[in-house]
Design a protein around this nucleic acid. Structure first.
Length: 601
RNA sequence: UGGCCGAUGGUGUAAUGGUAACACAGGGGUCUUUGGAGCCCUUAGUCAUGGUUCGAAUCCAUGUCGGCCAGCCA
């Protein structure tokens, strides 16, 4: 099954307040070429919350004939690593593959604004597809703009809009005031342009230790908006950067770097999450203060995605990893894109899910059930059906001779006749699911019971004649009789029984490890009432069983998704499978109507 | 006791001054060699109070509740 050809809602053109704005800007001729960007900081792995931003930004580029740049927002050398850069690039490509590949804006390798003397305003155009020289393209990096940014900062100083401040971090904080009390001007606020220029150059030259001085915007210490109270634009950090090494000891802050990175790349719509709403006046102020040649980008905010039964912040996900509560960032229980991918969730499902949650400014928590619904909807249409018994119980069909074997046709996918059929074989001994037999069945139980009958899927009806137990009273084996005349085409083919169960031929079945993946937390809101989310980790989130499967499952092709009939959707784990020794992961269970009935009884 | 943003069934969204709609979840039915899938039916909502208007989920005011903001993080 190819992820790219999966049918989904990708073909629909969604509408929301951001797309309305983009459409209006384009229609009015303000931004004929739409240009968005996805700007993660490489300090962690991408998760399904980022998927929303990716789908929004690339979706807009796709819908309006534009481009979406992938940009690493790497302005803080102490938190960022190459490992994260690599995972981010891989995850973004995976998520947009077969959907918006053609919209991915990258740049020719090694290119930076200062390598392009013609562009006086540091313009960095995006390339889609391939490099003119055939070299692989690379993402944009905010760190590629350090030189250009430094130049913009000196311009701000020359205009009297920024100054070097010698206040300590503690003093800076104290003089900032509080939300309901205005701040106090820094004593360094009225330095001359010449002095500021000289000091700023010496900050860059490494003459001062960390935190000794900052470059600050000259705005309004009395503003009710904290971010307008002379915010820090540059800080000194004698730290090696994952890309620029030790070329710099002066690093721009987010507010200064982001708006100008957007400008440098020619971004028209800079879409970010709600917490940046209060930064927008600063975003606009910096750009407006510089008297820039080209049109300025515009920031629009939306509410991030939240999902039930999980946590989403990088800090908490990192905690799960470092404390060993999961096996890594790509543990199949993790909401990271690498975790979802390993679990077997196709990118088209992530896209469809995100699409269905909509785009608003309301803080909301999306329902895990919706993700599972979209998953089942797509996998139902495409997954190959197979018989697998998770917790085997032996059933001996005493009217069949040793070595007697019967063959039946089994449909590979009832939703897709083109998927064809295969043979399944039945012998004297079969395994059935322990759950499919009850010695003392509850009301409305349709499966096997002493003296009762059930159909073995694709084969024939069997009756349970005897129950064998061990000394502790545990059921160890069943004896029964097969009615071979009830097979398809047989004289008793029309006989009706209440239940149909899955099974495997004991002699030909294979033992494989199956990992039953479930939600990571037992509560929809793991942090409800301020509790530590680690208190409600689901102890049953990952259960390993040794299953008995039909031979057709012994050596599965990587990347193929299966439905184990009546159980759920599974696929071989890309990491722990070996040739001839697959490990299956459960992507999602089938809906279980009986569990509801039994649970409420 | 500051500023900004938001509030529509259980959940997520739509309705852009004119019949509150869709999806998921829940409930019921139908069909079935998956208690799956499909199909049909169904429960349930505009935060409150005023105002403007022929008419308000929508506009205005006040209140309530929720989120965000006082990193030299992003």
């Amino acid at each position: 099954m190819s992820d790219a050809v999966l049918p989904s809602s990708d073909s629909e053109e969604p509408s929301d307040f951001i797309r309305d704005q983009v459409a209006a800007d384009q229609a009015a001729g303000r931004t004929p070429q739409i240009h968005t960007r996805f700007p993660p900081e490489p300090n962690g792995y991408l998760h399904i919350g980022h998927a929303k931003s990716i789908c929004l930004n690339f979706g807009i580029a796709r819908q309006f004939g534009g481009v979406c740049n992938l940009r690493l927002d790497d302005t803080n050398p102490t938190r960022e690593e190459t490992e994260y850069v690599e995972s981010i690039v891989e995850d973004v490509r995976w998520l947009i593959s077969g959907w918006a590949d053609a919209r991915l804006g990258l740049k020719s390798p090694g290119r930076r604004p200062e390598t392009d003397a013609a562009a006086s305003d540091a313009h960095q155009p995006a390339v889609t597809g391939a490099d003119a020289a055939g070299r692989p393209l690379e993402p944009f990096y905010a760190s590629d703009y350090f030189e250009a940014l430094y130049g913009f900062a000196t311009q701000l100083i020359r205009k009297g809009r920024a100054y070097v401040c010698d206040l300590s971090p503690e003093e800076t904080e104290r003089l900032r005031g509080s939300p309901d009390r205005p701040g106090t001007d820094s004593p360094f606020r009225s330095r001359t342009v010449e002095e500021n220029l000289d000091l700023f150059a010496r900050m860059r030259a490494g003459e001062f230790p960390d935190a000794a001085r900052t470059l600050r915007a000259r705005l309004d210490m009395a503003s009710p908006n904290i971010w307008l109270r002379d915010p820090v634009l540059y800080r000194i950090r004698h730290a090696a950067h994952h890309r620029t090494g030790d070329r710099w000891c002066l690093y721009p802050m987010y507010d200064f770097a982001h708006c100008l990175s957007d400008y440098i790349e020619g971004i028209t719509h800079s879409i970010c999450t709600l917490e940046f709403e209060v930064h927008r006046p600063l975003y606009d102020w910096i750009l407006a203060s510089l008297g820039l040649a080209r049109p300025r980008p515009r920031q629009i905010e939306f509410a991030r995605l939240n999902l039930g039964y999980t946590v989403m912040s990088k800090r908490k996900l990192l905690q799960l990893v470092t404390e060993g509560r999961v096996s890594g960032w790509n543990d199949p229980r993790m909401p990271t894109l690498s975790g979802l991918r390993r679990r077997g969730i196709p990118p088209s499902v992530v896209r469809d899910f995100v699409l269905r949650t909509g785009v608003t400014k309301v803080n909301a928590v999306s329902d895990l059930a919706l993700l599972e619904h979209v998953l089942r909807e797509q996998l139902n249409r495409t997954a190959l059906r197979r018989l697998a018994v998770l917790r085997p119980l032996k059933l001996v069909l005493t009217n069949l001779a040793e070595g007697e074997v019967h063959e039946f046709d089994a449909v590979n996918n009832p939703e897709d006749p083109g998927a064809g059929t295969r043979k399944v074989r039945l012998g004297r001994e079969v395994f059935i699911e322990q759950d499919d037999f009850q010695e003392v069945p509850p009301p409305k139980y349709f499966r096997l019971r002493p003296g009762g009958e059930v159909r073995l899927k694709y084969a024939c009806i069997v009756r349970c004649d005897a129950v064998l137990k061990d000394a502790s009273g545990r059921v160890t084996e069943l004896h029964g009789t097969a009615d071979l005349d009830s097979r398809t085409g047989g004289p008793n083919a029309g006989r009706k029984v209440k239940g149909t169960i899955h099974w495997v031929h004991a002699a030909e079945s294979r033992e494989v490890e199956v990992r039953l993946v479930d939600r990571l937390f037992t509560e929809a809101d793991p942090e409800e009432g301020g509790r530590d989310f680690r208190q409600v980790l689901n102890p049953a989130s990952l259960e390993s069983v040794t299953a008995r499967v039909e031979p057709a499952l012994a050596d599965p092709k990587p990347g193929i998704r299966y439905q184990f009939e009546r159980l759920g959707y599974f696929w071989p784990d890309s990491q722990d499978s070996a040739p001839g020794r697959p490990v299956f992961l459960r992507t999602v269970s089938l809906k279980d109507a009986w569990a509801r009935v039994a649970g409420t009884a």
